[in-house]
Design a protein around this nucleic acid. Structure first.
Length: 421
RNA sequence: GGUGACGUGGCCGAGUGGCUUAAGGCGCACGCUUGGAAAGCGUGUGUACGUUUAUAGCGUACCGAGGGUUCGAAUCCCUCCGUCACCGCCA
Protein backbone atom coordinates (compact mmCIF):
# COMPACT_ATOMS: atom_id res chain seq x y z
CA UNK A 1 0.00 0.00 0.00
CA UNK A 2 1.29 3.39 -0.90
CA UNK A 3 1.39 6.49 1.22
CA UNK A 4 -0.93 9.07 -0.31
CA UNK A 5 1.09 11.81 1.28
CA UNK A 6 4.16 10.55 -0.54
CA UNK A 7 2.28 10.59 -3.84
CA UNK A 8 0.99 14.08 -3.06
CA UNK A 9 4.48 15.37 -2.39
CA UNK A 10 6.35 13.38 -5.07
CA UNK A 11 3.94 12.68 -7.91
CA UNK A 12 6.67 12.48 -10.57
CA UNK A 13 8.80 10.11 -8.53
CA UNK A 14 5.76 7.93 -7.91
CA UNK A 15 4.83 7.79 -11.59
CA UNK A 16 8.40 7.00 -12.49
CA UNK A 17 8.45 4.14 -9.99
CA UNK A 18 5.19 2.72 -11.35
CA UNK A 19 6.51 3.06 -14.91
CA UNK A 20 9.26 0.60 -13.94
CA UNK A 21 6.43 -1.80 -13.17
CA UNK A 22 4.96 -1.17 -16.59
CA UNK A 23 2.11 0.98 -15.34
CA UNK A 24 0.84 4.24 -16.88
CA UNK A 25 0.79 7.64 -15.15
CA UNK A 26 -1.52 7.30 -12.16
CA UNK A 27 -0.76 10.17 -9.80
CA UNK A 28 -3.06 12.67 -11.50
CA UNK A 29 -6.10 10.48 -11.10
CA UNK A 30 -5.19 9.27 -7.61
CA UNK A 31 -4.56 12.79 -6.36
CA UNK A 32 -7.81 14.04 -7.84
CA UNK A 33 -9.68 11.30 -5.99
CA UNK A 34 -7.75 12.07 -2.84
CA UNK A 35 -8.41 15.76 -3.04
CA UNK A 36 -12.16 15.44 -3.48
CA UNK A 37 -12.26 12.89 -0.68
CA UNK A 38 -10.47 15.23 1.67
CA UNK A 39 -12.70 18.15 0.71
CA UNK A 40 -15.73 16.01 1.53
CA UNK A 41 -14.23 14.90 4.79
CA UNK A 42 -13.60 18.47 5.86
CA UNK A 43 -17.16 19.41 5.00
CA UNK A 44 -18.56 16.41 6.87
CA UNK A 45 -16.48 17.19 9.91
CA UNK A 46 -17.66 20.76 10.13
CA UNK A 47 -21.26 19.59 9.86
CA UNK A 48 -20.63 17.03 12.58
CA UNK A 49 -19.26 19.79 14.73
CA UNK A 50 -22.45 21.77 14.23
CA UNK A 51 -24.54 18.72 15.02
CA UNK A 52 -22.64 18.01 18.21
CA UNK A 53 -22.99 21.58 19.40
CA UNK A 54 -26.70 21.66 18.63
CA UNK A 55 -27.30 18.36 20.39
CA UNK A 56 -25.65 19.72 23.48
CA UNK A 57 -27.86 22.77 23.30
CA UNK A 58 -30.92 20.53 23.13
CA UNK A 59 -29.75 18.77 26.25
CA UNK A 60 -29.35 21.95 28.20
CA UNK A 61 -32.62 23.46 26.88
CA UNK A 62 -34.51 20.34 27.91
CA UNK A 63 -32.97 20.24 31.33
CA UNK A 64 -34.12 23.80 31.83
CA UNK A 65 -37.60 22.78 30.67
CA UNK A 66 -37.46 24.99 27.57
CA UNK A 67 -38.71 24.19 24.10
CA UNK A 68 -36.02 22.63 21.93
CA UNK A 69 -38.04 21.83 18.85
CA UNK A 70 -36.52 24.49 16.58
CA UNK A 71 -33.01 23.23 17.29
CA UNK A 72 -34.09 19.65 16.81
CA UNK A 73 -35.49 20.42 13.39
CA UNK A 74 -32.22 22.07 12.49
CA UNK A 75 -30.22 19.05 13.56
CA UNK A 76 -32.45 16.81 11.47
CA UNK A 77 -31.49 18.80 8.41
CA UNK A 78 -27.81 18.65 9.25
CA UNK A 79 -28.08 14.93 9.81
CA UNK A 80 -29.62 14.42 6.43
CA UNK A 81 -26.85 16.39 4.76
CA UNK A 82 -24.19 14.46 6.62
CA UNK A 83 -25.73 11.21 5.46
CA UNK A 84 -25.56 12.22 1.81
CA UNK A 85 -22.01 13.45 2.03
CA UNK A 86 -20.89 10.38 3.94
CA UNK A 87 -22.23 8.11 1.26
CA UNK A 88 -20.29 10.05 -1.33
CA UNK A 89 -17.13 10.02 0.75
CA UNK A 90 -17.44 6.31 1.41
CA UNK A 91 -17.60 5.57 -2.25
CA UNK A 92 -14.58 7.72 -3.02
CA UNK A 93 -12.59 6.23 -0.16
CA UNK A 94 -13.39 2.72 -1.35
CA UNK A 95 -12.40 3.45 -4.92
CA UNK A 96 -9.20 5.07 -3.78
CA UNK A 97 -8.40 2.21 -1.44
CA UNK A 98 -9.00 -0.37 -4.13
CA UNK A 99 -6.84 1.49 -6.61
CA UNK A 100 -4.04 1.91 -4.11
CA UNK A 101 -4.08 -1.64 -2.80
CA UNK A 102 -3.73 -3.11 -6.27
CA UNK A 103 -0.57 -1.14 -7.05
CA UNK A 104 2.81 -2.83 -6.59
CA UNK A 105 5.57 -1.60 -4.33
CA UNK A 106 8.13 0.97 -5.43
CA UNK A 107 11.41 -0.77 -6.21
CA UNK A 108 14.78 0.29 -4.86
CA UNK A 109 16.94 2.37 -7.16
CA UNK A 110 19.52 -0.41 -7.28
CA UNK A 111 17.10 -2.97 -8.73
CA UNK A 112 18.33 -3.53 -12.30
CA UNK A 113 15.97 -2.86 -15.19
CA UNK A 114 14.87 -5.91 -17.11
CA UNK A 115 11.87 -7.62 -18.62
CA UNK A 116 11.88 -11.05 -17.00
CA UNK A 117 13.94 -13.65 -15.15
CA UNK A 118 16.38 -13.82 -18.07
CA UNK A 119 17.65 -10.41 -17.04
CA UNK A 120 18.22 -11.08 -13.37
CA UNK A 121 21.77 -10.26 -12.35
CA UNK A 122 23.99 -12.96 -10.94
CA UNK A 123 25.91 -11.60 -7.97
CA UNK A 124 27.79 -14.73 -6.97
CA UNK A 125 28.21 -18.40 -7.65
CA UNK A 126 28.94 -20.55 -4.62
CA UNK A 127 30.21 -24.11 -4.42
CA UNK A 128 31.62 -26.35 -7.04
CA UNK A 129 29.37 -28.29 -9.37
CA UNK A 130 30.58 -31.85 -8.78
CA UNK A 131 27.72 -33.58 -10.55
CA UNK A 132 27.19 -32.09 -14.00
CA UNK A 133 24.49 -34.47 -14.99
CA UNK A 134 22.29 -37.03 -13.26
CA UNK A 135 18.96 -38.76 -13.71
CA UNK A 136 16.26 -36.45 -12.48
CA UNK A 137 14.80 -36.88 -9.01
CA UNK A 138 11.69 -38.57 -10.36
CA UNK A 139 13.71 -41.38 -11.87
CA UNK A 140 15.95 -41.64 -8.82
CA UNK A 141 13.07 -41.68 -6.38
CA UNK A 142 10.85 -44.03 -8.32
CA UNK A 143 13.66 -46.52 -8.88
CA UNK A 144 14.23 -46.56 -5.17
CA UNK A 145 10.51 -47.09 -4.73
CA UNK A 146 10.27 -44.11 -2.40
CA UNK A 147 8.55 -41.56 -4.61
CA UNK A 148 5.01 -42.16 -5.83
CA UNK A 149 3.18 -39.65 -8.00
CA UNK A 150 0.64 -42.13 -9.27
CA UNK A 151 -0.84 -43.03 -5.91
CA UNK A 152 -0.83 -39.38 -4.89
CA UNK A 153 -2.74 -38.53 -8.07
CA UNK A 154 -5.31 -41.21 -7.26
CA UNK A 155 -5.91 -39.59 -3.87
CA UNK A 156 -5.48 -35.90 -4.63
CA UNK A 157 -4.98 -35.34 -8.35
CA UNK A 158 -2.00 -33.89 -10.14
CA UNK A 159 0.77 -31.88 -8.47
CA UNK A 160 0.78 -33.99 -5.32
CA UNK A 161 3.32 -36.58 -4.31
CA UNK A 162 3.85 -39.30 -1.76
CA UNK A 163 7.26 -39.81 -0.20
CA UNK A 164 8.03 -43.05 1.56
CA UNK A 165 10.47 -44.42 4.07
CA UNK A 166 13.91 -42.90 4.13
CA UNK A 167 12.98 -40.30 1.54
CA UNK A 168 10.09 -39.06 3.67
CA UNK A 169 12.52 -38.93 6.54
CA UNK A 170 15.04 -37.04 4.43
CA UNK A 171 12.41 -34.40 3.75
CA UNK A 172 11.74 -34.08 7.46
CA UNK A 173 15.49 -34.04 8.15
CA UNK A 174 15.94 -31.08 5.82
CA UNK A 175 13.16 -29.13 7.50
CA UNK A 176 14.50 -29.81 10.98
CA UNK A 177 18.04 -28.98 9.92
CA UNK A 178 17.04 -25.61 8.44
CA UNK A 179 14.98 -24.82 11.48
CA UNK A 180 17.80 -25.71 13.85
CA UNK A 181 20.34 -23.60 11.97
CA UNK A 182 18.11 -20.55 11.97
CA UNK A 183 17.05 -20.85 15.58
CA UNK A 184 20.42 -21.88 17.02
CA UNK A 185 22.88 -19.97 14.83
CA UNK A 186 20.88 -17.12 13.34
CA UNK A 187 18.79 -15.91 16.25
CA UNK A 188 15.37 -16.62 14.80
CA UNK A 189 12.49 -17.54 17.08
CA UNK A 190 10.70 -20.72 16.09
CA UNK A 191 7.00 -20.26 15.50
CA UNK A 192 4.34 -22.86 14.91
CA UNK A 193 1.70 -20.75 13.20
CA UNK A 194 -1.85 -21.31 11.95
CA UNK A 195 -1.99 -22.74 8.45
CA UNK A 196 -5.50 -21.46 7.83
CA UNK A 197 -5.88 -17.70 7.83
CA UNK A 198 -8.52 -15.03 7.37
CA UNK A 199 -8.61 -12.80 4.33
CA UNK A 200 -7.40 -9.86 6.40
CA UNK A 201 -4.08 -11.55 6.94
CA UNK A 202 -3.71 -12.28 3.24
CA UNK A 203 -4.53 -8.70 2.47
CA UNK A 204 -1.74 -7.61 4.82
CA UNK A 205 0.89 -9.62 3.01
CA UNK A 206 -0.59 -8.62 -0.36
CA UNK A 207 -1.80 -11.98 -1.67
CA UNK A 208 -5.27 -10.42 -1.63
CA UNK A 209 -7.06 -8.87 -3.38
CA UNK A 210 -4.95 -9.37 -6.50
CA UNK A 211 -3.78 -12.96 -6.28
CA UNK A 212 -6.76 -14.91 -4.96
CA UNK A 213 -6.38 -17.25 -7.94
CA UNK A 214 -3.13 -18.62 -6.55
CA UNK A 215 -4.68 -19.66 -3.24
CA UNK A 216 -6.84 -22.43 -1.88
CA UNK A 217 -9.92 -21.27 -0.06
CA UNK A 218 -11.68 -23.39 2.55
CA UNK A 219 -15.45 -23.53 2.85
CA UNK A 220 -15.22 -21.91 6.27
CA UNK A 221 -13.99 -18.65 4.77
CA UNK A 222 -10.42 -19.46 5.74
CA UNK A 223 -7.60 -19.73 3.26
CA UNK A 224 -4.69 -22.18 3.27
CA UNK A 225 -1.42 -20.34 3.59
CA UNK A 226 0.70 -20.20 0.43
CA UNK A 227 3.71 -19.46 2.66
CA UNK A 228 4.38 -18.99 6.38
CA UNK A 229 5.21 -15.39 5.50
CA UNK A 230 1.48 -14.75 5.90
CA UNK A 231 1.00 -15.74 9.57
CA UNK A 232 4.53 -14.72 10.63
CA UNK A 233 4.34 -11.22 9.22
CA UNK A 234 0.78 -10.68 10.39
CA UNK A 235 1.85 -11.31 13.98
CA UNK A 236 2.54 -7.56 14.17
CA UNK A 237 -0.58 -6.49 12.29
CA UNK A 238 -2.57 -3.69 13.93
CA UNK A 239 0.00 -3.07 16.59
CA UNK A 240 2.49 -0.52 17.79
CA UNK A 241 5.82 -2.12 18.69
CA UNK A 242 8.46 -0.63 20.92
CA UNK A 243 11.51 0.18 18.79
CA UNK A 244 13.85 -1.10 21.48
CA UNK A 245 12.45 -4.65 21.11
CA UNK A 246 13.23 -4.79 17.39
CA UNK A 247 14.20 -6.57 15.27
CA UNK A 248 11.91 -9.57 15.59
CA UNK A 249 13.14 -12.62 13.72
CA UNK A 250 10.67 -15.45 13.22
CA UNK A 251 11.06 -18.78 11.50
CA UNK A 252 8.63 -21.60 10.85
CA UNK A 253 8.59 -25.01 9.18
CA UNK A 254 5.20 -25.36 7.54
CA UNK A 255 3.37 -26.83 4.62
CA UNK A 256 2.50 -24.32 1.91
CA UNK A 257 -0.48 -24.59 -0.42
CA UNK A 258 -0.60 -23.04 -3.86
CA UNK A 259 -3.20 -23.56 -6.52
CA UNK A 260 -0.64 -22.90 -9.27
CA UNK A 261 -3.40 -21.42 -11.39
CA UNK A 262 -1.86 -20.15 -14.57
CA UNK A 263 1.09 -22.55 -14.43
CA UNK A 264 -0.56 -25.34 -16.37
CA UNK A 265 2.09 -27.04 -18.44
CA UNK A 266 4.97 -25.56 -16.42
CA UNK A 267 7.19 -27.93 -14.48
CA UNK A 268 4.60 -30.66 -14.71
CA UNK A 269 7.19 -33.36 -14.14
CA UNK A 270 8.47 -34.01 -10.66
CA UNK A 271 8.28 -32.15 -7.38
CA UNK A 272 9.30 -28.70 -8.57
CA UNK A 273 5.82 -27.20 -8.67
CA UNK A 274 3.37 -28.84 -6.27
CA UNK A 275 0.06 -27.80 -4.78
CA UNK A 276 1.53 -28.66 -1.39
CA UNK A 277 5.12 -28.46 -0.20
CA UNK A 278 7.12 -27.81 2.95
CA UNK A 279 9.13 -24.69 3.45
CA UNK A 280 11.14 -23.12 6.24
CA UNK A 281 10.41 -19.42 6.20
CA UNK A 282 12.21 -16.51 7.80
CA UNK A 283 10.49 -13.22 8.60
CA UNK A 284 12.12 -10.12 10.05
CA UNK A 285 10.28 -7.17 11.53
CA UNK A 286 12.58 -4.15 11.73
CA UNK A 287 12.84 -0.36 11.79
CA UNK A 288 13.46 1.37 8.44
CA UNK A 289 17.10 2.11 9.23
CA UNK A 290 17.72 -1.59 9.90
CA UNK A 291 16.05 -3.04 6.86
CA UNK A 292 18.85 -2.95 4.24
CA UNK A 293 21.32 -4.64 6.56
CA UNK A 294 18.66 -7.12 7.65
CA UNK A 295 17.97 -8.00 4.05
CA UNK A 296 21.62 -8.90 3.45
CA UNK A 297 21.74 -10.78 6.71
CA UNK A 298 18.67 -12.80 5.79
CA UNK A 299 20.16 -13.64 2.42
CA UNK A 300 23.28 -14.91 4.19
CA UNK A 301 21.16 -17.03 6.53
CA UNK A 302 19.56 -18.70 3.53
CA UNK A 303 22.91 -19.15 1.77
CA UNK A 304 24.38 -20.70 4.90
CA UNK A 305 22.09 -23.70 4.87
CA UNK A 306 22.90 -24.44 1.23
CA UNK A 307 26.62 -24.10 1.98
CA UNK A 308 26.30 -26.47 4.90
CA UNK A 309 24.56 -28.95 2.63
CA UNK A 310 27.38 -28.43 0.14
CA UNK A 311 24.93 -27.77 -2.63
CA UNK A 312 26.22 -25.55 -5.46
CA UNK A 313 24.09 -22.48 -6.03
CA UNK A 314 24.09 -18.97 -7.34
CA UNK A 315 22.64 -15.79 -5.94
CA UNK A 316 20.82 -13.37 -8.20
CA UNK A 317 19.17 -9.98 -7.79
CA UNK A 318 15.82 -9.96 -9.48
CA UNK A 319 15.42 -7.38 -12.23
CA UNK A 320 12.47 -4.99 -12.31
CA UNK A 321 10.36 -7.30 -14.45
CA UNK A 322 10.75 -10.26 -12.09
CA UNK A 323 10.49 -8.51 -8.72
CA UNK A 324 7.32 -9.47 -6.89
CA UNK A 325 4.37 -7.21 -6.17
CA UNK A 326 5.18 -6.39 -2.56
CA UNK A 327 8.96 -6.29 -2.71
CA UNK A 328 11.21 -3.31 -3.13
CA UNK A 329 14.10 -5.66 -3.81
CA UNK A 330 14.51 -9.41 -4.00
CA UNK A 331 17.42 -11.83 -4.01
CA UNK A 332 16.89 -15.37 -5.23
CA UNK A 333 19.02 -18.39 -4.45
CA UNK A 334 19.13 -20.91 -7.25
CA UNK A 335 20.46 -24.37 -6.54
CA UNK A 336 22.10 -26.51 -9.17
CA UNK A 337 19.92 -29.39 -10.36
CA UNK A 338 21.99 -31.87 -12.38
CA UNK A 339 18.80 -33.62 -13.45
CA UNK A 340 17.79 -30.50 -15.35
CA UNK A 341 21.29 -29.06 -15.78
CA UNK A 342 19.90 -25.81 -14.55
CA UNK A 343 19.88 -23.59 -11.53
CA UNK A 344 16.40 -23.54 -9.92
CA UNK A 345 15.01 -21.22 -7.30
CA UNK A 346 15.01 -22.56 -3.73
CA UNK A 347 14.82 -19.27 -1.91
CA UNK A 348 13.55 -15.78 -2.44
CA UNK A 349 14.48 -13.06 0.05
CA UNK A 350 12.47 -9.89 -0.22
CA UNK A 351 12.53 -6.57 1.50
CA UNK A 352 9.01 -5.17 1.50
CA UNK A 353 9.91 -1.89 3.18
CA UNK A 354 6.79 -0.40 4.77
CA UNK A 355 4.54 -1.69 1.98
CA UNK A 356 3.01 -4.56 3.94
CA UNK A 357 3.24 -2.75 7.26
CA UNK A 358 1.05 0.01 5.89
CA UNK A 359 -1.50 -2.51 4.67
CA UNK A 360 -1.62 -4.20 8.08
CA UNK A 361 -1.12 -1.08 10.21
CA UNK A 362 2.03 -2.48 11.79
CA UNK A 363 3.84 0.37 13.50
CA UNK A 364 6.54 1.13 15.98
CA UNK A 365 7.40 3.93 18.32
CA UNK A 366 10.68 5.07 19.77
CA UNK A 367 10.77 5.76 23.48
CA UNK A 368 10.15 9.40 24.19
CA UNK A 369 8.92 10.11 20.68
CA UNK A 370 5.31 10.91 20.04
CA UNK A 371 5.05 9.78 16.44
CA UNK A 372 4.49 6.26 15.29
CA UNK A 373 6.15 4.97 12.11
CA UNK A 374 5.51 1.99 9.90
CA UNK A 375 7.71 -1.03 10.40
CA UNK A 376 9.66 -2.67 7.64
CA UNK A 377 8.96 -6.32 6.91
CA UNK A 378 11.22 -8.84 5.21
CA UNK A 379 10.64 -12.43 4.27
CA UNK A 380 12.78 -15.14 2.82
CA UNK A 381 12.75 -18.86 2.31
CA UNK A 382 15.34 -20.57 4.39
CA UNK A 383 14.85 -22.63 2.20
CA UNK A 384 12.11 -24.45 0.28
CA UNK A 385 12.23 -28.01 1.61
CA UNK A 386 10.67 -29.80 -1.36
CA UNK A 387 13.05 -28.28 -3.86
CA UNK A 388 16.02 -28.72 -1.54
CA UNK A 389 15.11 -32.39 -1.36
CA UNK A 390 15.19 -32.55 -5.15
CA UNK A 391 18.62 -30.91 -5.08
CA UNK A 392 19.96 -33.38 -2.53
CA UNK A 393 18.60 -36.34 -4.46
CA UNK A 394 20.22 -35.25 -7.70
CA UNK A 395 23.50 -33.85 -6.35
CA UNK A 396 24.09 -36.74 -3.96
CA UNK A 397 23.03 -39.43 -6.39
CA UNK A 398 25.42 -42.36 -6.62
CA UNK A 399 25.42 -43.72 -10.17
CA UNK A 400 27.16 -46.89 -8.96
CA UNK A 401 24.14 -48.18 -7.09
CA UNK A 402 21.37 -45.66 -7.76
CA UNK A 403 21.36 -44.58 -4.11
CA UNK A 404 21.36 -41.20 -2.43
CA UNK A 405 24.25 -40.37 -0.13
CA UNK A 406 23.14 -38.47 2.98
CA UNK A 407 24.90 -35.09 3.31
CA UNK A 408 27.05 -34.92 6.45
CA UNK A 409 24.98 -32.25 8.18
CA UNK A 410 21.82 -34.33 7.79
CA UNK A 411 23.25 -37.52 9.24
CA UNK A 412 22.28 -36.67 12.83
CA UNK A 413 18.69 -36.34 11.61
CA UNK A 414 18.66 -39.64 9.75
CA UNK A 415 19.05 -42.02 12.66
CA UNK A 416 22.24 -43.63 11.45
CA UNK A 417 21.28 -43.95 7.79
CA UNK A 418 24.27 -42.93 5.64
CA UNK A 419 22.83 -43.72 2.27
CA UNK A 420 19.36 -44.31 0.91
CA UNK A 421 19.31 -47.46 -1.15
C1' G B 1 -21.68 -28.01 19.48
C1' G B 2 -24.88 -26.42 24.13
C1' U B 3 -25.65 -23.04 28.27
C1' G B 4 -24.19 -18.78 30.90
C1' A B 5 -21.07 -14.50 31.91
C1' C B 6 -18.08 -10.91 29.81
C1' G B 7 -15.19 -7.46 26.19
C1' U B 8 -13.91 0.37 28.57
C1' G B 9 -7.10 3.83 27.86
C1' G B 10 -0.17 0.81 28.81
C1' C B 11 -2.74 -2.03 33.11
C1' C B 12 -6.80 -2.38 36.91
C1' G B 13 -11.56 -0.49 37.20
C1' A B 14 -16.31 3.00 37.55
C1' G B 15 -19.85 4.30 34.24
C1' U B 16 -27.50 1.57 32.07
C1' G B 17 -29.46 7.89 27.15
C1' G B 18 -27.44 14.55 27.89
C1' C B 19 -23.05 18.32 34.04
C1' U B 20 -18.41 12.14 30.50
C1' U B 21 -14.31 16.91 28.44
C1' A B 22 -14.53 8.38 29.99
C1' A B 23 -14.49 8.99 37.36
C1' G B 24 -10.83 6.77 40.50
C1' G B 25 -6.40 3.96 41.02
C1' C B 26 -1.72 1.75 39.25
C1' G B 27 2.22 2.47 35.98
C1' C B 28 5.13 5.94 33.22
C1' A B 29 7.34 11.03 32.17
C1' C B 30 8.54 15.80 33.89
C1' G B 31 8.71 19.31 37.91
C1' C B 32 8.70 20.78 43.22
C1' U B 33 10.78 18.96 47.74
C1' U B 34 15.87 16.43 49.41
C1' G B 35 22.85 16.18 50.72
C1' G B 36 20.86 11.88 47.78
C1' A B 37 16.76 8.62 47.58
C1' A B 38 11.92 7.11 49.21
C1' A B 39 7.45 9.19 50.64
C1' G B 40 4.58 13.43 49.62
C1' C B 41 2.75 17.26 46.36
C1' G B 42 1.89 19.27 41.36
C1' U B 43 1.55 18.71 36.00
C1' G B 44 1.19 15.63 31.96
C1' U B 45 0.19 10.87 29.79
C1' G B 46 -3.75 6.82 23.50
C1' U B 47 -4.65 6.12 17.98
C1' A B 48 -6.03 7.78 13.15
C1' C B 49 -7.49 11.50 9.95
C1' G B 50 -8.58 16.62 8.51
C1' U B 51 -7.08 21.80 8.83
C1' U B 52 -2.30 24.25 9.24
C1' U B 53 4.44 27.11 7.88
C1' A B 54 3.65 23.70 12.57
C1' U B 55 6.02 17.66 17.24
C1' A B 56 1.47 24.61 18.30
C1' G B 57 -3.77 25.38 18.03
C1' C B 58 -8.59 23.86 16.37
C1' G B 59 -11.83 19.99 14.67
C1' U B 60 -13.70 14.84 13.61
C1' A B 61 -13.77 9.70 14.66
C1' C B 62 -12.50 5.67 17.92
C1' C B 63 -15.08 2.20 24.83
C1' G B 64 -13.96 -5.85 20.66
C1' A B 65 -15.82 -5.23 15.00
C1' G B 66 -19.79 -3.82 11.80
C1' G B 67 -24.74 -2.08 11.26
C1' G B 68 -29.26 0.24 13.50
C1' U B 69 -32.56 3.40 16.89
C1' U B 70 -32.15 8.72 18.71
C1' C B 71 -31.65 15.73 18.25
C1' G B 72 -27.85 13.05 21.32
C1' A B 73 -25.11 6.15 22.44
C1' A B 74 -19.57 3.37 26.21
C1' U B 75 -24.86 3.05 27.78
C1' C B 76 -30.68 0.69 23.95
C1' C B 77 -31.39 -3.01 19.54
C1' C B 78 -29.29 -6.52 15.65
C1' U B 79 -25.19 -9.36 13.46
C1' C B 80 -20.34 -11.06 13.83
C1' C B 81 -15.61 -11.91 16.36
C1' G B 82 -12.99 -13.00 20.74
C1' U B 83 -12.30 -14.29 26.13
C1' C B 84 -13.79 -16.99 30.54
C1' A B 85 -16.75 -20.92 33.16
C1' C B 86 -19.47 -25.43 33.04
C1' C B 87 -21.42 -29.48 29.92
C1' G B 88 -20.94 -32.58 25.42
C1' C B 89 -17.60 -34.39 21.60
C1' C B 90 -12.64 -35.12 20.05
C1' A B 91 -6.50 -35.59 17.99
Amino acid sequence: MHDLRFIRENPEAFDKAMARRGLPVLSTELLALDESRRALQTEIQSLQQKRNEASKEIGSLKSQGKDARAVMDNVSKIKYEIGLLEEEEDELAQTLHMRLSSLPNIMSDDVPDGADEEENIEIRVVGEIKVKESPDHVEIGEKLGLLDFETAAKISGSRFVILKGALARLERALGLFFLDVHTQDHGYTEISPPLLVKDNALYGTNQLPKFAEDLFEATSGHWLIPTAEVPLTNMVANSIQDAKDLPYRYTAFTPCFRSEAGSAGRDTRGMIRMHQFYKVEMVSIVTPDQSDAEHKRMLECAETVLKKLELPFRTVVLCSGDTGFGANKTYDLEVWLPGQQKYREVSSCSNCGDFQARRMKARFKRTGEKDTHFLHTLNGSGVAVGRALVAVMENYYDPQDGGIVIPDVLKPYMGGVEKIL
